[in-house]
Write a protein that binds this DNA or RNA. Structure first.
Lengths: 365, 365
DNA sequence: CTGAAAGCGCTTACAG
DNA sequence: CTGAAAGCGCTTACAG
């Protein structure tokens, strides 16, 4: 790393102008083959790597797409806790509730993958930022200065910041509610998914006695799912208000707590519909501990389609969100916006898939 | 997005020079309070977001750290397969082996988190790239031009490319073997972890009859783990060559196949040591299907500490790698290198943790 | 505490 | 097909 070489170095070494060096790298066809080879040889020999900053500045685009999301799981906690320098190995008995393995937030991971995949495919790099307490606005701003467009998950950014930043680059909102009419927006069919799942239970499994384990008050996704649940009941002429609604918090732990309360009342429903998989997994934990059969005594369902649900026993019936696609769709929307800034706002709803598994169906036949 | 405003716009609007605008943003203390406020007001009013390109070019640093890793799971397959525009919902019976839920590659996800966390903490943005068949070299090069330093996972990049790129920016190698002596390197204690786990089985559980489910031939991590296994046996005076070694491939499916062969021989060992969790999970699938008790008949162990292992039943005994820390350590090493380019190469081994769970210990007492 | 000016390393019309 | 030159939007000594 003696001092990175520049176009000037390469040009001098190859005996051409810097314009020619630039052309060889960007539009090779415009340069005579012999010249091109000379230049390429110099590039390699000098270990030349073009500066994306200079390139971006001159070309007026960065070639980078941004993805920003809030930090839902308490990543802060992990701090330096695990940085224990004591020896190379430690042997511990890991009890079921010891929480030694932090539940990764699979939702975001998959959105990230999809975004990354699509961005690179389209010839863009991807820059990611996860909101962390301190100064989300600064972070958003920082990313905004580095990219050609930015996707933002749910309600991770205050409106004012979004508006400020959107004066420089296009913004795509992922999931959550549609905010304003100005931003492009991609999301999934929360209500339709929960509706379909509930209807299956109603029509195929003959369930009439439900309890609903809801998400946090302020979750728009949670609200949409709940609407889907109610809609299904109404469509079959049932009173949605007849089903008890328990307020959860999207965490496994909350799922456990709420289910414990439910068990203690002694009034178990035929089916326990959970607003997400984590809570459903928590419910499964508690029901198992109390010797309640799933699905023989109580049917349990989730929402999201995280991997842990497919490894649980019984495996969890759920509604799978196309999270990878969500990321991809966001990037596509952004690129389409970049190409044609005047097109009307994009609003996409991606389809979901109800996955029937043993927690509602019993063992495979 | 009428046309992003620049320092010049802000300077004109606030009635100061561009130098002052720059100072307000970078070293606010150097500017008189009243001036500062005037400028800040203009910044906000004009929706000014500084161009990171111009900034990076002028300041000779990008403020971005890079992370590149290979694409181990077949992400390609997912292609546009899931982009089905048919309706909003689909209901399907998801059989245990239908593979509808792609196993996320948790290893990378956690490294990514750790990197992201540490990078932002230190005031850097993070750019990620996942190698995808086509032109990994181009991608690495592309990232290299955009960042101040780059971390590269395992052997995802050919030596020649690494060398080329390292003439411009510092490179940190994550996991895998230490390549050359020039690069900084962070990894985990594979051998010590497997050694400790095996020793526990030997000394505490009194196991003497093992089978080893190995990783792919070309995996350095796999090789180190296997060494640890052999070392433990040797230390207790046992012949490591007495244990059958089955060649796997780190996938759950391979774990199933190999375990099926093992079951068919009728020669089940007392303990089946797997080189990673995915294979161990596959082994669990097959043993369960054949009515073999775990751990009563056969003890099964994994390596990695992925979440699915802690949700499986029985929960999987494993060696947990500090994957988040791996990412963080890589970023730290990079920053330390950036600060002091002449310091000797960094080589870090992070400690691991043996998690004893029901697949080796039986139900919690 | 503030400004004028050079320079960061490219791309891109414009000529030729 | 190739070169000279302007310009992208900042930062940073250097003066004052």
């Amino acid at each position: 790393m003696a001092k990175a070489s520049t176009v000037y170095d390469v040009a001098a070494h190859a005996g051409v102008s810097i314009a020619t060096v630039s052309r060889v790298l960007r539009r090779p066809a415009d340069v005579r083959a012999s010249t091109r080879e000379k230049v390429l040889a110099s590039v390699w020999e000098l270990g030349y790597v073009p500066s994306a900053n200079a390139r971006g500045l001159a070309a007026r685009r960065t070639g980078v797409l941004g993805l920003y999301f809030p930090n839902l799981d308490a990543m802060e906690e992990l701090d330096d806790a695990e940085f224990h320098g004591s020896g190379l190995v430690e042997v511990v008995r890991d009890m079921p509730d010891s929480g030694l393995v932090r539940p990764p937030n699979l939702y975001f991971d998959e959105v990230l993958r999809g975004s990354e995949l699509e961005a690179w495919r389209q010839g863009f790099a991807l820059m990611v930022g996860v909101g962390r307490g301190a100064f989300p606005a600064d972070m958003v701003n920082d990313i905004a200065g580095r990219v050609d467009g930015m996707a933002v998950l749910a309600q991770s950014v205050p409106d004012a910041v979004l508006e400020h930043v959107s004066r420089r680059i296009p913004i795509v909102l992922i999931a959550g509610p549609r905010r304003g009419d100005d931003y492009d927006h991609v999301s999934v069919s929360n209500a339709a998914g929960m509706d379909a799942l509930t209807t299956h239970l109603l029509d195929v499994k003959g369930v009439t006695n439900f309890a609903y384990l809801a998400g946090p008050e302020d979750s728009p996704d949670g609200a949409e799912r709940f609407d889907g649940f109610r809609r299904a009941l109404e469509n079959r002429g049932l009173d949605p208000d007849a089903s008890p609604v328990l307020r959860g918090g999207f965490s496994r732990q909350r799922g456990r707590e709420v289910t414990t309360e439910l068990v203690n009342t002694g009034m178990l429903p035929r089916a326990l519909i959970c607003a997400n998989d984590q809570m459903a997994l928590g419910a499964l934990d508690v029901l198992r501990a109390h010797g309640v059969g799933v699905p023989s005594d109580v049917i349990v369902t989730g929402f999201d389609g995280i991997e842990a649900g497919s490894t649980a026993s019984p495996r969890l019936t759920t509604v799978r969100q196309p999270m990878v696609d969500l990321g991809r769709a966001a990037m596509r929307a952004m690129l389409s916006r970049l190409e044609d800034p005047k097109q009307p706002p994009i609003s996409l709803r991606l389809p979901v898939k109800v996955l029937l598994r043993e927690s509602s169906e019993g063992p495979p036949s």
